[in-house]
């Protein structure tokens, strides 16, 4: 089977209750055109399998040192160091690692095995009004595979949702939308300059796609990551609410409070985390922002 018929999946999470209605399985695809500084899924950004190292699981058997064909691994102070310039993410070391401390994130999966995994919770979707949500990364980074997957889910009477950053060619996105029952559309910052500074890209395409999406009449929920010092200002949230008010498929806005759970993953990938030291918002601050958005006529939910 060629790679095109497979999708690169970073994780499958069952009993997910914050990514759309009911009990859902979230499929995280790997690959994202954005580099949001607050991203808590950095392992899903690059469109290739990547080696992760969990120092706490490591019992230092050093099996991996002998195995690596490229000599990318060394040991220092009881911990394994990965020379990322040498490592080609082949995964040999993770196969040999008995503790699971070295792990490749990103598995090329065929449609059928993936569908079989999704179908495992079918009875729970049916009774709770749940289904599948494709998230990431960016679902549209693997458009053909994701479209096929969503189509198959719908054929199996599974409700489908995607969570998208919107930074995609409209033709690509609209192909996926053919098989989508609900869109969770991420809007981060309305100011294009800031958007570029925080995520690496400008937001014109995102804004434009949101407008086109609104014409498709697919139920859409706007999701805003609320990150202190980045997106969490009154001004930004009002701008988002004002814009969302022009989109007639949007009735609901979710504010996703920034949390630090992603921080450790940056270390596991040997990447720099730029938000160190930022404290999550307090409950009351979130409530105030929620009321602000509500005043534009939306149902607002804190958290997914």
């Amino acid at each position: 089977m060629s790679r095109a018929e497979k999708g690169l999946i970073s994780e499958i999470q069952r009993y997910s209750i914050h990514d759309g209605p009911g009990i859902r399985t979230v499929v995280f695809v790997k690959g994202c055109p954005l580099r949001c500084q607050w991203c808590h899924n950095p392992e899903s950004q690059r469109p290739v399998p990547e080696l992760l190292y969990y120092p706490t699981k490591c019992s230092n058997f050093r099996k991996c040192l002998e195995i690596c064909p490229l000599g990318a691994l060394t040991e220092a102070g009881g911990k394994i160091q990965i020379d990322r310039s040498l490592c080609n993410n082949c995964g040999d070391c993770s196969q040999a690692c008995p503790t699971g401390a070295l792990k490749i994130v990103g598995e090329w999966m065929g449609l059928d095995p993936l569908l079989a995994k999704i179908k495992k919770d079918l009875p729970f979707y049916q009774t709770s009004g749940g289904g599948v949500t494709i998230s990431g990364g960016e679902p549209a980074s693997q458009p053909e595979f994701v479209a096929q997957l969503l189509r198959e889910c719908q054929r199996n009477a599974i409700h489908t949702a995607i969570e998208t950053c919107g930074y995609v060619k409209w033709e690509v996105l609209s192909h996926i939308l053919n098989y989508t029952n609900l869109v969770l559309y991420d809007l981060k910052v309305m100011d294009p300059e800031k958007h570029k500074a925080f995520t690496g890209v400008s937001n014109e395409l995102i804004v434009h796609n949101a407008q086109r999406l609104a014409q498709q009449r697919i139920p859409t929920i706007i999701r805003v990551p609320v990150v202190p010092g980045y997106t969490a200002s009154n001004e930004n949230l009002e701008a988002i609410a004002r814009f969302a008010a022009t989109l007639n498929s949007v009735e609901e806005i979710h504010l996703l409070p920034y949390h630090r759970l992603g921080e450790a993953k940056y270390q596991k990938l040997d990447r720099e985390y730029k938000l160190e030291g930022i404290a999550p918002l307090r409950e009351e601050e979130l409530e105030t922002l929620a009321h602000l958005v509500e005043s534009y006529g939306f149902r607002v939910q804190i958290g997914g």
Partner: peptide
């Protein structure tokens, strides 16, 4: 509510 439907199922 979701947990209730988990058990119900």
């Amino acid at each position: 509510e979701k947990f209730a439907s988990l058990l119900w199922t």
